[in-house]
Structures are given as structure tokens and as C-alpha cells.
């Protein structure tokens, strides 16, 4: 099997992906627009997903992510390779693009006004951001919100949205036209599939936005009606601090910036089971910001 490669010109970093697994390259053309893909050229990160070797013996049915030959993670099953690639690409940015404050949060926007959706894994932030994207918001990121230290604006890092388990069905039922990539079953995060960002998100991927609302969503099947509570700036600061990957590296400048964002931005905790109610809430939040 020969290795195929494809340059993915995402912003602010580009990737050159090489793989001997044909499905990986094919999945890229499902998840990314043709205008961002090219067969040759240079990129910031040269990544690959391939069969690992142990003492020159190839391990068939296994896949290993590498950056220029360096493997940050252990190998996984080959049918997870497309998911491993997306996680690996995120790792590259969180490890080497940490001159901005990186918050583990999703971010959507209309024009230049952004809403931050933060929470632990499984809180439903990816699902909600995917739904909002399909409701005419533009997606900035579903995982890594990059906040610039100079002006506290968010630089979009538009990438496919990682949906897990039931969220895949929820999105497919609500938005039958949403384009989904290959499914990886039984990963350590459960069943995973990625949803292709909307054309609007891709076409505005170079345009930064300002955080105007903060939402901490929590999906709970037992909730009948959406519960909304406004939280103090100190509480939202504490919660975002926990999700800020590199704040300990950036130090006081980043802490001060995060404090200012929290002081000037309304923040809410919402608990919901009906996605439509959560969407309505975000719409109201957006409308109320003049």
C-alpha cells in the first residue's frame, strides 16, 4: 500500500495528512471543503496515520498517529484511524499553538458576536454547537477556543465537530442534510462521528469574533423543561479557569484577560433535555445583546 497525502488548509494552522489507509484521505473530502484540500504543498504540521511497527513487524489492523514521526499517543484500532487523526490534529494545536489562551469550549457566532459554550466532556457542548451551526450560526470551534491575548478576540479554528453516541442520532434526525464522516465504534470516548462544518463557517474562518455570552450547558434526560440560571462573573471565571489548558503557562496576562471577559460578559448555566429549548435560549441571549 502506498501512502497518500493531502494538505488541509485550515486556519490558523494547516496540516499535511499522510496515510496508507484510503478511508482516512477519503473521509477528509467528506469533512472539509474541496477549496481547502490540495494534493501537494507545505503545511505547519505534517501528520500521519499509519500502521505501527514493532521491531520492523507491521501491526495490521492498528493505527498510530504521528507528527513528523513522533507519536504522542499509543496506537489504536485501524477502524478508529479517522477519529485518531482529528484528535491528533487538536493535540498539535494545543501543544504548539499555545500563544493564545486555549479554552476547552465550543464557540459559535453570528457575524462578530460569539457565544462560548463550555463544560466537561459529555455536557453536550459539541451537540449544541452543532445544532446552532445548523441553525445559521457560524461555528468557530467545537473543542478548542483560541482567545488572543492582545485583544481577547476569538480566532476561529474551524474543524469537523466531534459527536458522540446518541448525539449523532440527535443531529441526524434534526438535520438530515448535515454531512457526517465515518463512524468509529467503541473508542475511549464511545462511538464517534464528525459532522462537517457549514459553508458559512468555512467562508468566515478567517474572521475573529468577540465573546458576548457564556453558556455552561448540561444535557440531562430527566429534565422536562429547560432550567436557566444566571451565574456570577466569579463563578464563570472559576469554571472557565478549569477548562483553560494553558493558563498556567501564559500566567498573569491570560488570567487578567479571562477575568475581564467574565466581568463584562453575561454567563448562564442551562440544564436541558430538549435541544430546541437550548437553541431558543441561545437565540434569546443573542437577541438581547445590542
Amino acid at each position: 500500500m502506498s501512502s497518500n497525502s493531502c494538505v488541509v488548509r485550515t486556519s490558523p494552522f494547516s496540516f499535511k495528512v499522510s496515510s496508507r489507509f484510503p478511508s482516512v484521505i477519503k473521509n477528509l473530502s467528506t469533512l472539509y471543503p474541496d477549496s481547502l484540500l490540495s494534493s501537494c504543498g507545505t503545511a505547519d504540521f505534517n501528520v500521519s496515520i499509519d500502521m505501527p511497527y514493532v521491531s520492523t513487524i507491521p501491526l495490521f489492523r492498528r493505527a498510530l498517529f504521528t507528527l513528523d514521526g513522533f507519536a504522542p499517543f499509543t496506537r489504536g484500532p485501524s477502524n478508529h484511524s479517522h477519529a485518531l487523526l482529528e484528535w491528533g490534529m487538536n493535540w498539535c494545536v494545543s501543544k504548539y499553538g499555545a500563544d493564545r489562551l486555549i479554552i476547552h469550549a465550543a464557540c459559535v457566532a453570528k457575524k462578530h458576536k460569539a457565544i462560548l459554550l463550555s463544560g466537561d466532556s459529555g455536557s453536550g457542548k459539541s451537540t449544541l454547537s452543532c445544532a446552532l451551526m445548523n441553525e445559521s450560526y457560524r461555528l468557530l470551534t467545537d473543542e478548542l477556543t483560541l482567545v488572543n491575548l492582545e485583544d481577547s478576540s476569538v480566532t476561529p479554528f474551524v474543524r469537523p465537530i466531534s459527536l458522540k453516541d446518541k448525539a449523532i442520532d440527535v443531529i441526524q434526525r434534526r438535520y438530515p442534510f448535515a454531512e457526517m464522516g465515518l463512524v468509529a465504534h467503541n473508542t475511549h470516548k464511545g462511538t464517534v462521528s464528525h459532522c462537517r462544518p457549514s459553508d458559512l463557517s468555512w467562508s468566515t474562518m478567517m474572521e475573529p469574533a468577540e465573546i458576548r455570552g457564556i453558556v455552561f450547558p448540561k444535557y440531562s434526560a430527566s429534565t422536562t423543561d429547560i432550567e436557566v440560571s444566571r451565574i456570577s462573573s466569579l463563578d464563570s471565571f472559576t469554571k472557565l479557569l478549569e477548562q483553560a489548558f494553558n493558563i498556567h503557562i501564559l500566567g498573569s496576562k491570560a488570567i487578567h484577560m479571562l477575568q475581564q471577559i467574565c466581568e463584562r460578559t453575561p454567563a448562564y448555566e442551562i440544564t436541558y433535555s430538549d435541544t430546541q429549548q437550548a437553541i431558543d435560549f441561545v437565540n434569546e441571549l443573542y437577541e438581547s445583546d445590542n
Binding site: F13, D99, L250
Partner: peptide, 13 residues
């Protein structure tokens, strides 16, 4: 810009 970003990131680290 992507290069400047990586160099600054390394410097902060």
C-alpha cells in the same frame, strides 16, 4: 503568522 504563533508558544513554555 502560524510560524510566529508557534515560536511565541515555545517561548512562553
Amino acid at each position: 503568522k502560524s510560524v510566529a504563533s508557534q515560536l511565541k508558544s515555545a517561548y512562553y513554555e
